[in-house]
Each structure stands twice: as structure tokens, then as C-alpha cells.
Amino acid sequence: MQWQDEAIIIGVRRHGETSVIAELMTRERGRHLGIVRSGRSRSMQPVLQPGNRVEAVWRARLDEHMGEFKLEPLQLRAAKLMETATAVYGVQAMGALLRLLPERDPHPHLFEALDIILDAMDDPADAGQLFIRFELAVLNDLGYGLDLTECAATGSRDDLVYVSPKSGRAVSREAGAPYADRMLALPAFLGEGRPPVVDRDTLVQAFRLTGYFLNRHVYEPRGLTESSSRDGFVQAALKAVSKQAE
């Protein structure tokens, strides 16, 4: 068995004396693991860093085997990602999100999103809102997508400012007013036809929104806890956005 695909490295762990097991997010085959022989060599270590984009050739005798990777670098951006706390935590947090999905389950749109977000990590406001959209996309692929396009009570697409914590659907200001203290806020940049203004307050709302549904539908049922890298990313992004606004 053999295939070739573009991929982004999301994790590496030691295997034996000289090899590693690389965890990749591939464009067409989802999250995939494989052994890289001599992966701990001086020539391969710079390639095998999270966030780098590579061309991967996978070989195995049978499809169900772990198999081996041969990797060629396409974009070595790990050094740039290590320059800010937002980027360091961001690549780790997105890797943790991808591990919630079944291995070898294709999600080409998540590969594309990951690639775009990694290139935007130098701007914390852009990185923050793109990360939120990535979490929403993962929730959707897990079967828990939110409907933020129209009011759950009236069907209206106007003045949507809340999200129901029960249904995960948007609610208009008027319909949600009697239950405002029980509602989650809908960040302005997630609303259709609304300006994509991203400041600290809207990011706080957004992180609370996706965090709530990830905990409710994914982490708690599986007996998991939110990754520490997500908390690190949230704090780093909020701090950076606040500093930009000064």
C-alpha cells in the first residue's frame, strides 16, 4: 500500500533510538500517524516541527498498519510560530482539536483551515477569530454544529445577539430578552451581514461560546478535560489584542 499527500505536522513522539512517530493532518486522508525512520537526525528535526507543511509518502504492507512516512518539506514555518505565545499555543490547541476526530477520517476543509490559520498567527485578532471558526468547524464535523443563521424562535435573520445553550441556535434580541441571563452571547463577527470587528470583549464571548459546546458535547461525555493549550491560546490572544488596543 502506498499514497502521497500534502500534510501539516501536528505532533511527534519518539520511537526507538533514532525514529519518531509523526502525526500529520493530511489534505485527503485526515489525521494520520506513521513512523519516520531516522526522524531524530539533525537533518529531519527541523522538518518534524508542528506547523510545518510537508509532502508525505506513506507505505505499509496492509492498509490497517501504521506504516512509514517519507517526508519532504514544503513550508518550514515552525520557527516563525515559535516567536509568539499565541502561535505556540495555537498550533498545539488545533492539534488537540483534530485529535477529537477519528484517525484517517477525511476532513479536507479542516486541512485548508489549519493551513490558513497557521499563516495568520502573527495577528492575534485574526488568529483569535479564525481559531473560533476552526472550533465551530470541528464541532460541526463531530455532529454538533451550531445554527447561527436565524432566530430559533421567530426564524428572523435580523438582530441576532444570543445563542441558546440548549439548542445551539441563534436567538434575536427581542425573542431572547426574557431569558437574557440564561443565554450565551453571539459575537458580532459570527453574525451574517455584521462587521467583522474583533476586540477583546467579542473574543471573550466567542471563546466562552465554543468552549461551552465543546465541554457539553465532547469533553464531558468522553470524560476529557479542555486542553491546557487552548487555555494558553485564549489567554495569549486576549492579552495581545488588549495590548494592540492600548
Rank of each mutant, 00 (worst) to 15 (best):
P178T: 02
I117T: 14
Y179S: 14
D181E: 15
G211V: 07
L114D: 02
A237N: 03
L74T: 08
Q75S: 11
M44L: 11
A120S: 13
M1T: 09
D122S: 15
P102R: 02
L130G: 03
R29N: 13
E72W: 09
Q4T: 13
S156L: 12
F189K: 07
V12H: 10
E6Y: 13
D158T: 14
A188Q: 12
C151G: 09
G145K: 02
V88C: 05
S43Y: 13
M121Y: 15
L148P: 02
V20L: 06
T149V: 09
G16S: 01
L203T: 00
M1S: 07
H32A: 13
R40T: 13
S228M: 07
A78V: 06
E174P: 04
R99G: 08
A240P: 09
R42H: 14
D199A: 10
A236D: 05
T18R: 15
V138Y: 04
Y144R: 05
R133Y: 03
L136A: 01
I8H: 04
L238F: 01
L209G: 04
P102V: 02
K70E: 15
V218N: 03
M25L: 05
K70A: 12
R194A: 14
P165G: 01
E17K: 08
Q2V: 06
F134A: 01
L74C: 11
F207L: 02
R37M: 10
Q75H: 15
G11F: 01
Y219P: 01
I21L: 13
V12N: 14
L71G: 08
R104I: 07
S38P: 07
V47Y: 05
F69W: 02
S228Y: 08
K239T: 09
G223T: 04
H65R: 15
M1N: 05
A185M: 07
R29D: 03
E246R: 11
D5P: 02
P102K: 03
Q244N: 12
G193P: 06
L110Y: 05
A185Q: 14
E68T: 14
G34C: 00
V241G: 11
Y162L: 05
T210P: 05
I35T: 12
N140E: 14
L142A: 01
H15N: 12
L209K: 04
S19R: 01
D115M: 09
V57N: 14
K239E: 15
E174R: 10
Q244G: 08
R29G: 09
S19C: 06
P187I: 03
L146A: 01
F111D: 03
R53N: 11
V161W: 07
S227G: 07
V88Y: 05
V234G: 02
A188N: 11
M183W: 02
D147C: 07
E83K: 11
V234E: 10
P46V: 04
R194D: 11
R59K: 12
E17D: 12
R53K: 15
Y144Q: 00
P106H: 04
N140V: 05
S229D: 03
Q2S: 08
